[in-house]
Design a protein around this nucleic acid. Structure first.
Ligand SMILES: [Mn+2]
Ligand SMILES: [Mn+2]
Ligand SMILES: [Zn+2]
Ligand SMILES: [Zn+2]
Lengths: 145, 145
DNA sequence: TTGTAAATGAGAATCATTTGCAATAACGCG
DNA sequence: CGCGTTATTGCAAATGATTCTCATTTACAA
């Protein structure tokens, strides 16, 4: 009875559907970019001006523990969020222009499975991200540091 | 002329060898554990009581940019440090008992090289760590969450 | 329509890390 | 060895990200 599957899932798990949760979810779904809490907050407030940053954090926290949203690091001091999709993928962030390149890495997934099996580990979370310089930034001089 | 190679490298790069740098380096080298800034600070202060936390941070920062020490995340909100050795290795942290399992993963290194080549990227830093439950913690009931 | 518990907003609190600045100490040189 | 220059330090205040407290609002089951 609810159009949005994310909202439906939230609802199904016994959470109340508030305007702010709906908005945060919409922003998250309607963006290809990799948003951090502040960006999410700015976008959300365009639709719901009175929303607070704390609510943004609280909302992604709920979505995270439900497995609907993933938080990951792009090498910065704060987290970024993205809705969880079928295929797992990872990120490379250019230190020059900031662009994020997404890539999939089945070999990495395999390596993890092997390790887990060999050592008897139960892997709950994987953190994998790269930083460096993209083609454009490497070309355009400024090969600093 | 300097016994410790790390100290020698620091010196060679034009940095002054201070008591506190020597101490931080010694603590880092003489520990198998994965120390965070606070732990490093506590251990360092046993040898040099007046050292400050700020100096610990400043020291690891210098060592990091020289490539002598690596900072990585173990899933917590703060960083951990370890001296850089020949073979790159990664970490799995048990959410139950806190133990850290180190492992090497050539497949991951390969996957990164391939990606870099294919996309023309220059990878400067790799962040790869796992969290979950170790064999002991999985066995000993408490299969919470 | 109402009661009740969940969720929110605002701001204070917390944590990790960084920074400003005056005092201290390394070390190249005479 | 004794100095002078300047990097480095200690301390405290500043910052940035995220969490928490608490009074107020709101979702939603009955
Ligand atoms: Mn992505
Ligand atoms: Mn290690
Ligand atoms: Zn770039
Ligand atoms: Zn364990």
């Amino acid at each position: 009875m609810e159009a949005n599957p994310l909202i439906a899932a939230l609802q199904a798990s016994g959470h109340r559907i508030t305007r702010q949760r709906r908005v945060v979810l919409e922003v998250l779904e309607g963006s290809q970019e990799h948003l951090d809490a502040e960006a999410l907050y700015q976008k959300a407030r365009q639709r719901s001006p009175r929303i607070s940053l704390a609510t943004v954090y609280r909302t992604v926290a709920v979505l995270k523990q439900m497995g609907l949203v993933a938080e990951y690091s792009l090498g910065e001091e704060h987290g970024h969020f993205e809705t969880v999709t079928e295929a797992p993928h990872y990120h490379f962030t250019c230190l020059g222009c900031g662009q994020v390149v997404e890539f999939d890495a089945p070999q990495v997934v395999l390596a993890i499975q092997e390790l887990a099996e060999r050592e008897g580990l139960e892997v709950r979370a994987v953190q994998f991200s790269l930083t460096g310089y993209c083609v454009q930034c490497r070309a355009g001089g400024r090969d600093d540091r």
